[in-house]
């Protein structure tokens, strides 16, 4: 049998970040049947991470320039995933400290994540992870 690395590592990571990665699918995809109504999603802010794709802005330019000045080219690209701040952004309460390795090869299976999440202390409140205002507002309009 072929060993799938993902299957070995799923138990270590997981946590609720698995939920946030699939939240958009649960809320935006799936079968919609016109004979049924849907609960209102007004107010839910689906999007959970700061936009980390490059946005052309002075802030971005300065940040990159700063980063380039600090970079030690001799050291070569890091082999370990995740600058600390990136990991912080994508790590939710359930997944503390496990920078589940983007590079080390963990595919998070959702079932694993959910098993863990069910064992967690229940978090109260709406699913309202960190969201960028503009994105959230846009999303909100779409949902209404």
């Amino acid at each position: 049998m072929t060993v799938v690395p993902a299957q070995q590592q799923q138990s270590g990571g997981g946590g609720s970040s698995g939920l946030y990665d699939v939240l958009e699918l649960i809320l935006d995809r799936g079968l919609v049947i016109d004979a049924f109504v849907r609960v209102s999603l007004v107010g839910i802010e689906i999007l959970k991470i700061d936009v980390r794709v490059v946005v052309a802005s002075v802030d971005t330019y300065l940040r990159f320039a700063e980063a380039c000045n600090r970079l030690d080219l001799e050291a070569g690209p890091r082999k370990q995933p995740g600058l600390p701040d990136l990991v912080g952004e994508i790590t939710e309460s359930g997944a503390k400290g496990k920078s589940k390795g983007a590079l080390s090869g963990a595919a998070e299976t959702v079932s694993g994540a959910f098993r863990e999440a069910r064992g967690e202390k229940e978090e109260q409140g709406e699913a309202r992870p960190r969201a960028r205002k503009s994105t959230a507002a846009r999303r909100k309009e779409e949902e209404e």
Partner: peptide, 12 residues
């Protein structure tokens, strides 16, 4: 409402 526990329950 789309609360965390309900989204989890739906998915589960």
């Amino acid at each position: 409402r789309p609360k965390r526990r309900d989204l989890l329950a739906h998915q589960n």
